[in-house]
Design a protein around this nucleic acid. Sequence first.
DNA 1: AAAATCTTTCGATGAATTACAAAAAAAGCA
DNA 2: TGCTTTTTTTGTAATTCATCGAAAGATTTT
Lengths: 94, 94
Amino acid sequence: MSGINENNIDIEIIKALADETRLDILRLLKNQEMNVNEIAAHCTVSRPTISHHLQIMKRARILVSRKEGKEIFYSVNGYVLTSLAQSILSLISF
Amino acid sequence: MSGINENNIDIEIIKALADETRLDILRLLKNQEMNVNEIAAHCTVSRPTISHHLQIMKRARILVSRKEGKEIFYSVNGYVLTSLAQSILSLISF
DNA sequence: AAAATCTTTCGATGAATTACAAAAAAAGCA
DNA sequence: TGCTTTTTTTGTAATTCATCGAAAGATTTT
């Protein structure tokens, strides 16, 4: 049983996307990495709340982080989103 | 501003997918339409709960329904899922 | 009209989620 | 060593969500 039609939808990844604030963050990170402060400057919610959302997306592997001195830069893991898109398409009959 | 890169992710659709029971229902409906009773026979949750989940997915336009006598048959709207997959890919930088 | 069948709505409850302020942790700089 | 900056963790309040049994709505059959 390989290849076609596995439907491995990872519910943790979908749940991590099912929040407006987290989608906003993803849109911010589309073309550039940012740290929590930069992200918070563009959002309406508090810095701790942003940090919380970042952890959720990191745990779901939607984001990856890179530490540079005292700063932590976040960026999008395109592979995970590509796989998710595939899984969603696999819900449709051929 | 057309075509490329609109990122119209509809959060209602994502939220409608972010539940294990609803994903189970979608997998059941992949190749055949079913009514609530048939779906409930394959799930562990109660009929009213199934009905509730069906309404959520119908409101999000993931499902469509067809009434035949006293029965209502549900099936997957592939177009909505295809659009969602596109939107998810649009979160990735080119 | 009444009964039977299929389905949804109502009302309640427990669990999960989001959000903030305040405190704590981690790392570099004076 | 203290001081500042960046970030996360904690504690708490408010909201949202999934679930069930019971009741109600809708349609066909008798």
